[in-house]
Amino acid sequence: MQTKRTIFPNKLLPYLLLTPQLAITIIFFLWPAGQALKSSFEREDPFGFKTTFVWFHNYARLFSDPEYLNSVWRTAIFAVSVTAISMSVSLLLAVAVNRLLRSGKFYTTLLVWPYAVAPVVAGILWWFMFNPTIGILPYLLDQFGINWNHRINGSQAMILVVIAAAWKQISYNFLFFVAGLQSVPQSLTEAAAIDGAGPFKRFWTIVFPLLSPTTFFLMIVNINYAMFDTFGTIDATTQGGPAGATNTLVYKVYADGFLGLNIGSSSAQSVMLMLIVIALTVIQFRWVERRVQY
């Protein structure tokens, strides 16, 4: 790995400089992760006196548990919907801002601030708008004959959390799409325009393909966001309900382990989640390497 051409000769100093970071990493990251891995292979008796090594028993139970499989399925629907909605809206807005010269900055300021809204607050804002008794959206939907009650209707609960989570993520995707669009060479679009390609054709045949590294990167980041950072959104709105309709994997780990105190199963779930994050991170870093060559 790269260092400077000349380096400082000190022997002890670099270790001292690394100590705080490594201490925190080991105590609060690596050690707990190891513990989760260890207890995912163990079963604790109900009184916590004795633990027995049970090999893959917890995992086998997990994958035969219909509730867990349901949660995997719900998480997939949730992550794909949030990513698709949030990214397509942001791309549309970014393309629009990119067409403007002066007013673009003004719109940008109005569009970026939701980045700073906590996921739980985003959840509460939309929960208020969708509140079956006093919310404005159920009131409007009622005019069209749609009866909105996300407390009993699972699909409506899912729609609520998807919208709240996607809304918060628009600003992030928007900023990256704007940055991506600005790096598309103007000369290419001009050449296409001279050849008679209209704005829509230019977008789909030139701009969109050149944007694909950004799109791919955002896809990974958004899936990561939808899976791990939306705990607050769900906890504030549906709490995984009704009947597990919005019980994502992260919410289930929390509910089973912290509220339900089922350590073995919860650890096995944690380990499954770690594998997902590791896969996503590896894909993301692979992509960074490719972009350097690009």
């Binding site: 790995m1 970071q21 490594l22 990493t25 080991i26 105590i27 609060f28 990251f29 690596l30 050690w31 707990p32 992760a33 513990q35 989760a36 207890s39 791990f228 705990f231 992260v250 780990v253 929390y254 382990g257 912290f258 350590i263 919860s266 650890s267 944690s270 989640l273 770690m274 994050v277 590791i278 991170t281």
Partner: peptide, 22 residues
């Protein structure tokens, strides 16, 4: 370097109980 890199892959959400215990 790799130990620090690993923290990227271990958000609080995947190690709730053991971190709480520590």
């Amino acid at each position: 370097f790799w130990a620090i890199f690993l923290t990227l892959m271990l958000p609080v959400e995947v190690r709730i109980i053991p971190t709480f215990k520590v």
